[in-house]
Amino acid sequence: MNFSLKVWRQANAKAAGEFKTYKVNDITEDTSFLEMLDILNEDLIKKNEEPITFDHDCREGICGTCSLYINGRPHGPKNLVTTCQLFMRSFKDGETITIEPFRAKPFPVLKDLMVDRSAFDRIIQAGGFISVSTGSAPDGNSIPIHKDVVEEAMDAAQCIGCGACVAACKNASAMLFVSAKVSHLGLLPQGKVERLERVLNMVAQMDEEGFGSCTNTYACEAECPKGISVTNIARLNREFLAATFS
């Protein structure tokens, strides 16, 4: 398969960026999207052109490092997969593919397609945890938890922190990310104890980082590679109200 790639190139955070067009040829349909970029980069290096910088690590869809805004969608055209799990068979031979970084003010571009998502870390540091120090835990079976509750918590806990929800949102809202953590911990009996402080601290940090407000477009859910549901946002709002008026 042959493709024409329109790729965002930007030397560093301060430089102005621009699209550049590259051709890649003879790509097999089993090649992953990132492997296609690897092949292009090898080509560029041999031609003394700087390779394209992009974040990636596990290449099995779980670490949340890879990003990319492909043809106007975070993680590309397929639902429920990350960019690293996207294969070229999902594109048409001869297609022009546009590749941009995740764009949001709280995610500044560092170089080319690489962005800084440390705002997510700081939101977790503000309250995305259960305050239990090592050594003070009771037996794991001492608190029975209904299977359905654990499954619901797990659905939220699957978030990989990639930031697709923010990139997809016209307001660059981080509500899906924050609500997934608030739900995961707040649903479990262990996490209920500090659920009110948690939601207040996390939302305050989210606002401080400059993420936008949620206007219920559900674009975040549509683009989430892990299928995190917007019902978590509803739960976040309830918890936030409860915390505000308590």
Binding site: V132, A137, P138, K147, V150, A157, L188
Partner: peptide, 11 residues
């Protein structure tokens, strides 16, 4: 320890 931290182990 992990249960106390909120790891949602299968039940």
């Amino acid at each position: 320890q992990c249960v106390a931290q909120g790891v949602p182990f299968a039940r």
